[in-house]
Design a protein around this nucleic acid. Sequence first.
DNA 1: ACCTTGTTCGGAGCCTGTTCGGTAGCTGGC
DNA 2: GCCAGCTACCGAACAGGCTCCGAACAAGGT
Lengths: 200, 200
Amino acid sequence: MPLTKRQKQILDYLKWFIDRHDYAPSFDEIREEFGYTSLATVHEHLSNLERKGYIRRSYRESRSVEFPPDVEPSIPLPLLGTVAAGMPIEAFEDNETLSIPGEMIRSGFNHYVLRVSGDSMIDEQIRDGDHIVVNARETAEDGEMVIALVRDEAATVKKLYREGGNRVRLQPANESVEPIIEDAADVRVQGVVVGLIRQY
Amino acid sequence: MPLTKRQKQILDYLKWFIDRHDYAPSFDEIREEFGYTSLATVHEHLSNLERKGYIRRSYRESRSVEFPPDVEPSIPLPLLGTVAAGMPIEAFEDNETLSIPGEMIRSGFNHYVLRVSGDSMIDEQIRDGDHIVVNARETAEDGEMVIALVRDEAATVKKLYREGGNRVRLQPANESVEPIIEDAADVRVQGVVVGLIRQY
DNA sequence: ACCTTGTTCGGAGCCTGTTCGGTAGCTGGC
DNA sequence: GCCAGCTACCGAACAGGCTCCGAACAAGGT
């Protein structure tokens, strides 16, 4: 719903004041700003702004003007479980979620979150306890970091490289962990790591 | 729910005090700060702040004010610039923002995001291009990762350790980078690293 | 048992928002 | 022209919130 000239002036003043003070102006301060002599005028303007949806107020509360929250695009993703080198995914029972920066995911694709256990990817700067954001898909490019299932036994996070003879190498990032080399047919990609979240 | 002028002043004092001491002020300290003569006034203000959801308290417990965890799943924070070892912060012009998981930040406190340049923290699993989430404050505990300003010259991200003789050690996490040892008076903490975001 | 800390109650004045009745100008439709 | 409806404004009376006080009570820690 569009505003009148006067209503826009008042709305702009509210924005300016709240931005500057972190609290809303009183009716009297608005009255002063616009040179009115009656608070009823201020009241009516604010009522109209509220009716049109530009502000929200609480009944009979001081300085209670606020702006309706603009819904930020936030993407809560399910935290499915834990991955470690050579260990199957340990699924979590409860539907825990973690909010992920919208910039991190490609919209329209399935994503989920896993908690990393162990230091098998330490040389890729992924440490124990980090959360990785995974784009769920079944194909990956050479060198991408993937969640891979070997012969339906163990889900691990590794970097994937194609070798000759239709074989693939699952490369950990830790000197003390050996790479896994298998027939491509025995390795199923479950997803590609697209992001990392760490809390200190 | 919005605050009145007085309520905001008191909330700001709470934030300042907790940021500085890591514990909440007593009623009497608040009373002193604002020149009241009755604790009942303090009590009523805190009750109002709690009613409006800005703080939480425990019944009959000393210094039990705390800030409720942020309900919003994702908070856009300003991306202020770049930090590197030994290099000043290079500020960005435009007001870029990055959405951060709400779980990562202490609500009620100022946070911002910096892009890490270089590999000086590689042994702490922070790599070139990562984004770190920083809680803006001027004090830090031993061993915390901080943004530190040395003699107003260079802002760096390092781990902070207190040495004897009122000196502090700024410890990088890279063998080829030497630690910096300075008088505590010459080192100003600008913030503490609370989270890390990486995109592949 | 004492001190510190937080809680509750009753009361006060001022601040703030609400409501109502009324004036005026402007616009579009009959 | 005349009326209806909207925006813009005024003044006064009212009601409840906000901010503060002092005193007494309760619980914890030392």
